[in-house]
Amino acid sequence: MIDEEKLIARAQQGDVSAYNRLVLHYQDIVYNVAYRIMKDPAAADDAAQDAFISAYKAINSFRGGNFKSWLLRIVTNGCYDELRRRKRRPQSSLDEITEEIESPGFLADKDADAPEEVRERVELVDAVQRCLEELPDDQRIAAVLCDVEGREYQEIAEIMSVSIGTVKSRISRARSKLRDCLQGFGELLPVQYRLNT
C-alpha cells in the first residue's frame, strides 16, 4: 500500500519520481475508464497519457480528498473533450473499420472449444460491451463508473461535475436501455440474463 498523501505532497514539490509511483498505481483504472468512454484502445491510450500529464501540471490545485476521483475526473473530462472534437470533425480509423469487417468481436467464435459456461460468459460480455457502446456518452460513463468501477453516486457526481440527481437519472436511463438492448440477444445469453423471461 502506497502512502498516497506523502507522494502527492512530494509531487507537488516537483518530485516527478514520487508522482510516477502514483501513476503506476492508478494507470490501469485510468486506462479502463478511458477505454470504456472512448471505445477505442488507441484513443484510450492517448487519453490516459494526456490525463497523467495534465494531472501533474495541475497537481498543486489538488486540495486533498480522493485522489483517484480527481484523476478520474481529469481523464473523463479529457475524453469528453475528445469526443466533442470528433463529433465536430467525424473521422473513422481505418484499422477500426478493417477489424470490424474482418472479425466482428461479437460474432467471432473465440471460444469454440471452451466449455459451455465459458462460452456463454464470453457471449454475455460481448453483448454487454456492444449494448454499452450504443449508449449516449454521459449515460455510458455513469454506468461504467457505477457498475465497472464501483464508484458511489456522490463520487460519480464529482467526477462528472454534475449533481447527484443527474447521476441517478443517467444510471437509471442507462440500465433501462441496457436491459432493452440485452433482451434482443435472447437465447444467446445465459439463462439468468434472459431478461424477458
Partner: peptide, 23 residues
C-alpha cells in the same frame, strides 16, 4: 432484471494499461 444488467456490466474484463504512463 436490473440486477442482472448490473452484474453483466460488472463482468466486463478489467483491462491492463498497454504501457506505463510515467513521466
Amino acid at each position: 432484471q436490473l440486477r442482472a444488467v448490473k452484474q453483466g456490466v460488472a463482468q466486463l474484463p478489467r483491462l491492463r494499461a498497454p504501457r506505463n504512463y510515467t513521466l
